[in-house]
Design a protein around this nucleic acid. Structure first.
Length: 449
DNA sequence: GTTCCCTAACTGCTACTGAC
DNA sequence: GTCAGTAGCAGTTAGGGAAC
């Protein structure tokens, strides 16, 4: 097929909280957040409070037995404003922006409160479905699947989506839609362009990150200007020194931005940043704050150069930068900043998952001398901890139980938890699997001998 | 009731490595 | 040289749990 012949389906990219819905024999049996892409939180009861999600739908009419649908939960801008007005009238703080409000609402424990907030949901993708072996596929294009969902009572972007042959019309439609962005009743942050034919989608497959058959056209990020007040230098788990810009707080797209990563020394130089500069700030993907550039033409002459430290801001060791690398590092593995960051990483959800032992407590215990390193987690003096202000019996019991539970975590989590540079989750799994094979092999050879 | 801490949710940029 | 994969770093907000 020539490129000009390829059919694309273009639809708005909704900006809210992602959800996944599972229907079995026409009944909604499970609703979950997307989470990290593999596992999310079950929120079925809350999902049932959303009126635009049918509790049952006649999938069986189309020969579908089990189906998983992806969608996005949103709060309509009008409902959001009304709800905030109520909060203010009741003397409570209003919610900051519709996106976080929608994502947060899904996790409220009281379904009645969820119901009050009038969430809405758009569904935009059927991830998989099962049919009896004899049955023909109920749809062959993405566009048809959206029509089917609409017909079954879901809110899919049936009206907003358009199908085009060739890429030029796709581009025109995206640009045209961008103009109407602010007039829509809900937040969108771009458009999604998908190859329409499902067989072709299948052939194109996925990378580890994303499908090769879909791409997002992001609208111009929301921007603001502010003043660069100072630059702090943070020491990461692996000793990397990250400059972080502290700016005069500026509201951008519903949140207040005050702190922005500058990544490394090169970036500061390339962007020609000086303390006191007026800087153009945007939220990349409407989320992550990012300094676009400094406005050098507005300088008054009292701006100061940013001095990148020669020594570690925490332990004062000399910093090193490897040939060809951009990142300066503190190579003192006993540097308190690194030790603390390593312990925090070890405790984290993706590593040993020691709940209730986050960065604030790790720092506190380290400073008090109650915790010196990772092994120290397993010889903590709980009596002393129990006598600290803010630690009741319940907290100590929970902490003790969480640490005890971590002893049963699989090997790959332990390897990942050690926080060795270049050893992320995937590599840790590979290493753990290699260890397993070695143990099997050892056992096998011993038995043979 | 208030305050603090923690977690989860949303997501991007940069650096480096390895395969092709 | 390009692309994909992986890792490391970073932001704010909302809500829950526990202590005070």
């Amino acid at each position: 097929t020539g490129l000009k012949e390829i059919e694309y389906c273009v639809e708005p990219k909704f900006d809210g909280g992602s959800i996944s819905l599972i229907y079995e024999d026409d009944l909604m049996v499970r609703g979950a957040t997307r989470g990290n892409g593999v596992e999310g939180d079950e929120i079925t009861t809350n999902i049932k409070q959303i009126r635009s999600i049918p509790l049952s739908a006649k999938f069986s009419k189309h020969g579908i037995q089990t189906v998983e649908i992806r969608g996005e939960v949103l709060i309509n801008k009008n409902n959001f404003a009304k709800y905030n007005q109520q909060l203010v009238e009741q003397g409570q703080a209003p919610l900051a922006n519709p996106r976080n409000a929608a994502a947060g609402t899904l996790r409220i424990k009281d379904p009645a409160e969820v119901s009050k907030r009038n969430l809405e949901a758009f569904v935009y993708h059927i991830s998989y479905y099962t049919t009896p072996a004899t049955k023909e596929a109920p749809f062959t294009t993405h566009s048809q699947s959206l029509d089917l969902l609409w017909e079954l009572g879901f809110r899919s972007p049936k009206q907003e989506k358009k199908v085009f042959k060739g890429i030029q019309q796709v581009i025109d439609y995206c640009l045209e839609f961008e103009h109407t962005r602010d007039n829509l009743p809900y937040e969108i942050d771009g458009m999604v362009i998908k190859v329409n034919n499902l067989e072709l989608q299948d052939k194109m497959g996925m990378t580890s990150h994303h499908p090769r058959w879909a791409i997002a056209y992001k609208f111009k990020a929301r921007q603001g200007t502010s003043k660069l007040l100072s630059v702090e230098f943070q020491v990461g788990r692996t000793g990397s020194i990250t400059p972080v810009a502290k700016i005069q707080p500026v509201p951008i797209g519903g949140v207040t931005v005050s702190s922005i990563s500058l990544f490394n020394e090169e970036v500061i130089r390339e962007k020609d940043l000086m303390i006191g500069d007026t800087v153009l700030v945007e939220r990349a993907g409407d989320v992550i704050p990012y300094i676009v550039k400094s406005q050098a033409e507005l300088r008054k002459g009292d701006e100061k150069h940013i001095k990148f430290p020669k020594n570690c801001p925490v332990c004062d060791s000399k910093l090193f930068k490897e040939e060809g690398e951009a990142v300066w590092r503190c190579i003192n593995i006993e540097c308190p900043a690194q030790v603390v960051e390593r312990i925090i990483h070890f405790n984290s959800k993706d590593a040993m998952d020691i709940r209730g032992f986050g960065d604030a407590n790790v720092r506190k215990f380290y400073e008090m001398g109650l915790l010196k390193d990772i092994p120290g987690l397993y010889t903590l003096d709980f009596e002393k901890i129990g006598s600290l202000e803010g630690f009741g019996k319940k907290s100590v019991d929970n902490l003790q139980a969480a640490i005890e539970k971590s002893k049963t975590q699989p090997l790959h989590r332990l390897i990942f938890g050690l926080g060795i540079r270049f050893v992320g989750e995937t590599t840790a799994k590979t290493l753990a699997s290699a260890v397993d094979h070695l143990m099997d092999f050892k056992q096998f050879t011993q038995e043979q001998l």
